[in-house]
Every structure is written in structure tokens, then in C-alpha cells.
Design a protein around this nucleic acid. Structure first.
Length: 232
DNA sequence: GATTGATCATAC
DNA sequence: GTATGATCAATC
């Protein structure tokens, strides 16, 4: 029960990272917080990123608030994902903000979405409205790289959505668009403005937006990991 | 009950 | 203000 924060060295390999993540499976948020010398926030409405940041520390993530992968040397991104009792994601998954003012000059392979989703370690977190933050348990990690079909679908979504923003139709982009990827506001509050292209060639001040993965998509990823051999 | 649009915490 | 980490809560 040491209270001093213990700096974790970064994992030396993907296998090392997964081994560490597996060692956390079954443990509760309060147990992990105690190990790291962190206090579990008393009001979970004000603790939205707490578990994700706790896992970063526990696993030795290096990127901090930079736009690099969480595990820079491995090129792996860490995502915690809240799941219900059946393992179904309870929320969409934030991917990245949209660089609206320059999105027209970016193609898929250069995009933040492509880079962020190239290699992800998902860590499910048991979650329910009536389950206190500290009592939530950490699940087994799921390493994921998009397969051919998944990348094709994500790219199609990105082409459509980024295309709309890039050609000045940002105001017509709602969260209804996109099969697996969607665009939603991403800001501290709705009065924040960013700059997006206007169809007429000028600039429009509008709320900053981000790309999110729909829960149907992450559900398929988690489900596939639980049924590794559906061939035959 | 699922989904969309809005919001919260922290570091720099 | 930027980025990171996300979930909340009003609405469909």
C-alpha cells in the first residue's frame, strides 16, 4: 500500500504491453488507483477521463498530451472502453479532433484517423450508471489492427465526412452520417469556435468537431476478440 | 433505450 | 488557446 506515485517505464514490446495489460484484468479502479497513489474522484460526472489516464500511467504510456501514439516506441494507441454486463460498449469512442481548416488537403493515409487507428489496444472497463467509479473492474485487453474490410469501411466514411468538411459543407455534417465513423462536437462547451472552410471560399466560425467510432463498430471488435476462431 | 450534441478534467 | 483522456444528459 505505498502511496507514492510509481512511474512505470514504457513497455519494451507489444507483447510486454499486453502482458502488463492482462495483469490488470479483474482488478478494480480503486485498487489500481491505490497502487498508483491516485485518489478516485468522488463525483464521477467530473471524472470522464480518469480511468483512461489511470491506465496510461499503469501501463507506462509516454505521449502525455502530445498528438503521438500513447506508446510512442510501439506505435500503439490505448483506448479504454466502457462496457455493460454483456461486454457491449456503452459509449462511442473518441478518435481525434478534425483539423477543419486544412482537411481538404489531407488524404486518408495522412489522416489522424488512419494513424490513430492503425494499432490500438482496447481495454474494456466494466461500467453501469449505478456502479461507482472505484468499484468498476478492468477487463482483458484487446489488441486490434483494422483488417482489410474494416479499413475499407473506415476510409469510405472518412472520405465522405472529411470531404464534406473540406468543401465547405461542415454545417450539413451531423452525427447521423457515417457507417462506423461519425462527426460530433468536441469542445469544452458549445460556445467555442473553430475555423472551417465555407463553400463560397471564405471561412466559417463553428464549433470544433471530432471523429468518433460508433459503438456498433467497437462492439464488433470486442466480439471478434472473444470468438477468435469462427473459421470452420 | 439508443443516439446525438454538449460537456468535464488535466497538462501545457 | 492547444492537446490529451472521455462520459453526460437532452432528445429522438
Amino acid at each position: 500500500m505505498t502511496a507514492a506515485p510509481t512511474p512505470r517505464p514504457p513497455p519494451e514490446s507489444v507483447a510486454d504491453l499486453i502482458t502488463r495489460a492482462r495483469a490488470l484484468a479483474g482488478r478494480s479502479v480503486s485498487e489500481l488507483a491505490a497502487d498508483l497513489g491516485a485518489r478516485v474522484p468522488p463525483d464521477q460526472r467530473r471524472a470522464k477521463g480518469f480511468v483512461g489516464q489511470l491506465l496510461e500511467r499503469a501501463l507506462g504510456a509516454t505521449a502525455g498530451s502530445s498528438d503521438r501514439p500513447d506508446f510512442e516506441a510501439l506505435g500503439v494507441e490505448l483506448k479504454t472502453i466502457p462496457v455493460d454486463g454483456t461486454g457491449r460498449p456503452r459509449e462511442s469512442t473518441f478518435v481525434c479532433t478534425i483539423p477543419m481548416s486544412e482537411i481538404a488537403e489531407v488524404d486518408w493515409e495522412q489522416s489522424r484517423v488512419y494513424r490513430k487507428l492503425a494499432h490500438v489496444l482496447f481495454v474494456p472497463i466494466e461500467s453501469a450508471p449505478d456502479l461507482p467509479l472505484g468499484a468498476r473492474r478492468i477487463g482483458g485487453p484487446v489488441e486490434w489492427r483494422p483488417d482489410e474490410a474494416q479499413e475499407r469501411d473506415l476510409r469510405a466514411d472518412w472520405d465522405e465526412l472529411a470531404g464534406l468538411v473540406g468543401r465547405g459543407d461542415v454545417e450539413s455534417v451531423t452525427a447521423h452520417l457515417g457507417r462506423y465513423l461519425q462527426v460530433r462536437p468536441k469542445a469544452a462547451h458549445s460556445r467555442i469556435r473553430g475555423r472551417a472552410p465555407e463553400a463560397e471560399g471564405g471561412w466559417l466560425e463553428t464549433v470544433p468537431r471530432g471523429f468518433y467510432l460508433r459503438a456498433t463498430f467497437t462492439e464488433a471488435i470486442l466480439r471478434a476478440a472473444l470468438a477468435p476462431s469462427m473459421i470452420t
